[in-house]
Amino acid sequence: MYLENVVIDAREPQRLGRFWEAVLGGERLTDEPDGFETRLAVEGGPVLDLCLQRVPEPPPAPQRLHLDLRGGARQDQEVERLLGLGARRLDLDPRDLDRREVPGVVLADPEGHPCCVLEDRAAYAGTGPLAALSLDCAEPDRAAEFWSWLTGWTDVAGVAPRSLRHPSRRGPLLELRPEAAPKGPTKNRMHLDIRLETGDDPDDVAAGIAARGGRELPSEGAALPWRIFADPSGNELCVLPARS
């Protein structure tokens, strides 16, 4: 199994997808009326696809999964670049967003999803433009065990209570942070997709998720080729079948 996608709900997938593609320097994969995909490949590290899917409703607050961008020594210039691409400033301290201590400038993408442009930190060396995927969770230690098993990413020193990273030690961190409040019934506007590999048994994976505190969620409407789950904190994720 491996982490394949960051999925973002959007009212206008093309507009938002082109924004994130420009921000991250992604490679376009799909550009359709109801979906847009762009690929972020980190040399010597993971490949992550950002998948934008059309939904009608506006983003709820707060955002439990958000993207942190590496600003480093060029933080001010990076902020101005994002503003020029269509981002806007949010009147928030980064600690209000996810209780962190790392300085950063809080922005919102064109549809209001918060993101941070971070100052330089040793923990983010070699990440590329995407420094971290920051996920709210009830118990960071439990979440780290769950997500490490799912993704194969392993513990690294970071600024969050627990941080995971691809075994190459390249690419973004998955930062597991204490939630301000329990997950409500509203679906997260961003979620992660796990891809099975040849030989992975879907039922064994489902049992492993349950054994680690997650649960399977019912799918709505027609049968889907993937299965939907929640992590121990209620954050949605999808498990995709192995590629043929």
Rank of each mutant, 00 (worst) to 15 (best):
E119S: 15
E101T: 14
E27K: 15
A143F: 07
A108R: 04
Q75L: 12
L150P: 02
E32W: 06
A122S: 14
T38L: 04
E57L: 10
D68W: 02
G35R: 15
G71H: 06
V23F: 05
L52N: 00
P114C: 04
L50M: 07
L82M: 14
R142H: 12
P59M: 11
C51Y: 11
D141T: 15
V79Q: 05
G44Q: 07
L29Y: 04
L85N: 00
G86N: 02
P59W: 12
L92E: 08
R70C: 11
A144H: 03
P140Y: 05
L107R: 01
R142G: 08
L130N: 11
L135N: 00
E119T: 14
A160M: 10
T30N: 07
E32M: 11
Q53D: 07
G158Q: 11
R121S: 10
F146V: 13
E32Y: 07
S148I: 07
Q75V: 12
E27L: 11
R95G: 11
D136E: 15
G84W: 04
P56L: 08
D96P: 01
V106P: 06
L90Y: 03
R15D: 02
L85A: 04
D109G: 05
A143R: 09
E21R: 15
Q77G: 13
T30K: 13
S148Q: 09
F146P: 01
G158W: 08
L69F: 13
V102R: 15
R100S: 14
R99V: 09
L82F: 09
P94Y: 03
G72V: 08
R54H: 07
E27I: 14
E21A: 14
W20L: 03
V47Y: 04
D31V: 14
V159Y: 09
G128M: 05
Q53M: 13
P94S: 05
